[in-house]
């Protein structure tokens, strides 16, 4: 069984009649994902690539047993769409929309917490368990997805959608497949941070190693390092952080409060140090991920 999703996952796409959502719905279907319904208020009765559209998530759940949602609605409607899905009993919500204001994001995350649901994103291109199922736009059309993502033993968690595909593609051409790849989302506040996904990967028998793609800003990587130090993690973790040059760029402004809340965290060098300190193997160059993975998987 894969993590988060598999071939039995039943997906509803909120905002399915939008241009982008319609095209990734087609890609998901073609990949074999069960997209059972779509939701766009006022468009009930329509079909998008054969998928029936409803006005509410409730109807999608009642008629099709949907248990997972992909949300691709304009930023101002995203909070409500996510809460509607959770209220209807959806357990996993992958939020594709970007530029959702943070005060909306914390509300939808609180709502998910209060109802025992999980959010991936916002600003997530999606997730994939290669060969089984995928959420949202990750990997693009099937032909492209198959070139980049192949089944295997390594879980990939990434803050960048594009670099997740790049990383998995480079792994795949080097004969290293993925147990799951999750684009956690590019925003400062997200439903599932790296360290919050680690327990799932620890339990997953198919995952033998983990790759992390990080970026400058926020404390996602430092928090991951703290988590590993405190709770331990039995599988090797390889990390790469893009954008180190930003550390030296002028115009980085932080208020006093930001510095007090995060300490001096946020810089790429600081992140790498924290991760190394927690026993994570840190790649300085992106292609070094492959070298390190081959070592930990004893492929040579």
């Amino acid at each position: 069984m894969g993590i988060l999703i598999d071939e039995n996952t039943r997906v509803v796409v909120q905002g399915i009649t939008g241009r982008e959502a319609a095209s990734f719905t087609e890609w998901m279907l073609d990949y074999g994902t069960k997209v059972v319904a779509g939701v766009t208020p006022g468009k009930e009765g329509m079909k998008v690539h054969g998928v029936p559209v409803y006005n509410t998530v409730k109807a999608a759940v009642e008629n099709h047993d949907a248990n997972t949602s992909v949300v691709s609605v304009p930023p101002r409607f995203t909070k409500d769409a996510v809460m509607e899905a959770i209220d209807a009993g959806i357990e996993l919500v992958s939020v594709f929309t970007e530029r959702v204001p943070r005060s909306d994001v914390i509300e939808m995350i609180q709502f998910a917490k209060d109802h025992g649901a999980r959010i991936i994103g916002p600003n997530s291109l999606g997730s994939i368990v290669p060969g089984k199922a995928k959420l949202a736009a990750i990997g693009g059309p099937t032909e492209e997805t198959n070139k980049a993502y192949t089944p295997g033993p390594v879980a990939v968690l990434s803050r960048s959608g594009g670099m997740m595909t790049e990383t998995c593609s480079l792994m795949s051409v080097n004969g290293i497949g993925q147990s799951v790849a999750i684009n956690v989302g590019g925003d400062p506040i997200i439903g599932s941070m790296f360290h919050e996904l680690l327990p799932l990967l620890e339990k997953d028998p198919e995952t033998r190693a983990v790759v992390i793609y990080g970026e400058p800003g926020t404390v996602a990587e430092e928090t991951l390092a703290d988590y590993i130090k405190e709770h331990g993690f039995s599988k090797p973790v390889v990390a790469f952080i893009g954008g180190g040059f930003v550390d030296k760029m002028p115009g980085q402004r932080f208020g006093h409060a930001a510095v007090i809340v995060t300490g001096k965290k946020g810089s790429v060098e600081g992140k790498k140090e924290a991760l190394r300190d927690a026993g994570v193997l840190v790649a300085d160059y992106h292609s070094e991920i492959i070298t390190l993975l081959k070592e930990v998987l004893k492929m040579k």
Binding site: R159, G162, M163, G242, G243, Y285
Partner: peptide, 16 residues
Amino acid sequence: IGAGGGSLTTFDAILR
């Protein structure tokens, strides 16, 4: 160079 993360990654390597 592109896209977002890809630009960061490539640019880092150029400087390194």
